[in-house]
Design a binder for these strands. Sequence first.
DNA 1: CTTATTTATCGTATATCTACGATGAACGAT
DNA 2: ATCGTTCATCGTAGATATACGATAAATAAG
Lengths: 104, 104
Amino acid sequence: MVNTKPQEFSAEEINLADIAKALSHPARIKILKILSAKNVCMCGDIVELLPLAQATVSQHLKKLKRVGLIVGEIDGPKVCYCVNTQTMEKAKESLTKLFKKVCC
Amino acid sequence: MVNTKPQEFSAEEINLADIAKALSHPARIKILKILSAKNVCMCGDIVELLPLAQATVSQHLKKLKRVGLIVGEIDGPKVCYCVNTQTMEKAKESLTKLFKKVCC
DNA sequence: CTTATTTATCGTATATCTACGATGAACGAT
DNA sequence: ATCGTTCATCGTAGATATACGATAAATAAG
């Protein structure tokens, strides 16, 4: 009798799940839209546009940063956030690949 | 002075976040791949292919069902799961729309 | 009817997520 | 040096996610 149960998931599956997790809250979806619309944006500007406290927005930004979907550059006391187009492209490709495999 | 802080998120943002949440675990990514490869599949078959207990796999299936990405049809004591291509297409379109807006 | 098979659900433990106020750290301006 | 601005982090509370064994429910087969 052979053990067919695999030990873990593939790096690709884990990576795609991480991307999806970063996109799994409306606030983070909206943050990406805001950043792309303004091209570059201070944290404070984002807080103004979301129904959330500054600390909470900062946490959401951290999660988007962690997977590389956005980048924050320090500019004096402020921080300029912007979309990381390269990572975003990769994310899009990974998802497109999944959809192609799964249905379309 | 005007209050610029919105009260909540849009239905579209919430919906997209829900889809992303359903895809936010490697097991669920893999389940979708398995189902599409076999076209139709029993729960037990999926359990064999994942490094998880039956109860855990059942929970993951439930989450995919909840957002409509898969459908389970009862067949005697078994349940035949398959990808819901329609919902999958919609999910793909929603994500594509986001990526188009945000970067690509 | 009893038994075996298949799957969902329950109960439970641990971890992560989400949200906020308070505080700290970094910087520019005075 | 002090103050105001901006943002991250800490501490905390409650909710949700993840995993499993045990059990229940439904059906097919004997």
